[in-house]
Every structure is written in C-alpha cells, then in structure tokens.
Amino acid sequence: MKKRLGLTMRARHIVQGYSFISIWIVGFFLFMAIPLFRSLMFSFQDLKIMSGGLEATQVGLKHYNNAFTVDTSFVPRLITSFTNIVIQVPLTLVFAMFSALLLNRKLLGRIAFRGIFFLPVIIASGAVLKKLMGQGATRLPIFDQVDLVGKLIDYVPGQILFPLLKMMDAITLIMWDSGVQILIFLAGLQSISTTLYEAAKCDGATPWESFWKVTFPMIVPMILVNTLFSIVSSFTKVDNSVMDYIQYIVFNKSDYGYASSLGWIYFVFIFLVIGAVFLMFRGASAEERR
C-alpha cells in the first residue's frame, strides 16, 4: 500500500472511520439535528403562518409556563403516560422473558411458534391497532361481563385492586407489543455458553437454581436493552396520549411554538426516566455494560 498524504497510521485510521460514518452524519444533521435545534428555537417563539413563510415573535418562556399553569390537559396526560410505563414495562419484560425461555427449549414446531409470537409486531402496528382498540378487541371482556370489580372490592382494598385490574386489562396489548423484546431475549439466551449449564449441573444445581445463578445474571445486559427499548417505544408510540396531544396541537391548532415546547418538556421527562433506569441498573449489576 502506498502511503497517502503522508498520514500516520493512526490518523489514517481515523480518516477511514470518519469516511464510513460521514454519509450518516450528514443525513443526521440535515434531518435530525437541525430540525431539533430549530424546534428548540421555535419553542421560545410565537409562530404565525404568513403568505411569505413563518413569522416569529420572541415570547421567552411563555409556552413553558403555559404548559404547566394554563393548559389543563398536558400534565394529566404526562402522568397517564408515566403510569402506563410503570405498569406496562415490567409486565412486558416478564412476559417477554417467560416466552423467550419457553421458545428457547427444544420442541416441535419451534420456528412456527416463534413466527407466531412475532406476528403482532407486523400486524398490530399503527392504524390496525387503533382500529382494534376502537372496537374493544384489546380488552378482555371477562371483567365487564362478570362485574369483577363489584365482587372483589369487598375483599381487596381499592388502591391495590384498581391498578391490578388495569394491568390485567392491558395484558393483551402487552403480549402483542413484546415481539421485539422476545427476540432480543432469545438472542441473549442463545449466546450463553452451554458449558456454564453443564458446570452448574455437575455441581448439583436444580433447573430453578441454574436459572437464577446462570441465566439471569448472564441476561442482565439484555434486560437493560429491553427496558430502554420498551420505554422509548412506549413513549414515542403514535397512540401515546402525550404524542397524540402534540400531534393535535401541531396539525389541528397549528400552534407550532407551543407544540415545540411541549415536545421539549416531554423529551426532558423521558430523559429523566431513562436516566433513572440507568442508575437502577448500575446499582443492580457490577458487570461490564455497553
């Protein structure tokens, strides 16, 4: 190889690296970074659509104040989507883990089962899911038919009962939503070396013990990836109530400045939630993470 431009080995390495990533970076700046920056500017402005384009007047922090003080529907929606996360993400993880463990066993028609478990990811996305929800097909009808609430309220205190019922209600949706998570867990399970299980077995570990002592610790990094994935996808889903509201303000009320500031508040909020998750995992595992 001839030495190009008299660069050192290391410098050439860096140039090569950047030349690979450059296309993506250009795209990222044009269609993500610049729009993001603009929307941050917009969030401090009042925008009017004029014939010649957008006309902006500086209003400072007005939008941010309004979001918390004037607007009566933003904060409740924020709280709803937060409680949804708290309820749904752990359930998704447990269900995905359980399914992945089952699907990782050797059984007849394993590929077919895996395919079926991934099917809702393809079908129940966006428009179709909305239709299903509108028809009430995503709720288990048993609860309404037998008046479960009325029967159980005598035995179980309301603070426990209602979140519990809400969980049960969301369970079909959770199952349909967990295809990608199952896949990620499966990938993780398959990368655990067989010798570990053999060693555990030789030492007399029961399957139960070898799950908690071998499988679980090995799969912690995947749990982190899945938690992040679930949180982000649930926060940015089109049918999320805050997203719905922002969409509505952008397209129906054309109040773009206000929508931008809501978007940024929402972003900070998600950021905090994810930061908290990271801290939790840092406490839970001392192993190397990516």
């Binding site: 990533i21 970076i25 990222f28 044009l30 269609f31 993500m32 970074a33 610049i34 729009p35 993001l36 603009r38 929307s39 917009f42 982000v232 926060f235 940015t236 805050v242 997203m243 922002i246 969409q247 952008v250 773009y256 929508a259 931008s260 809501l262 978007g263 940024w264 929402y266 972003f267 998600i270 950021f271 994810i274």
Partner: peptide
C-alpha cells in the same frame, strides 16, 4: 459523543421535528 447523540435522538418525539424537516 456521537453514540450518545444517537441515543438522545431516539428519545425525541418525532411530531416536533416534522415541521422543521418540512422546512429543510
């Protein structure tokens, strides 16, 4: 830094970038 930028971008609600994207 590039990688953490990507992760940050993951968290952003797409509705907000739509109009600036339109402008671009």
């Amino acid at each position: 830094q590039i990688f953490s930028m990507i992760i940050l971008a993951l968290m952003f609600a797409p509705a907000v970038t739509q109009i600036p994207q339109y402008l671009v």
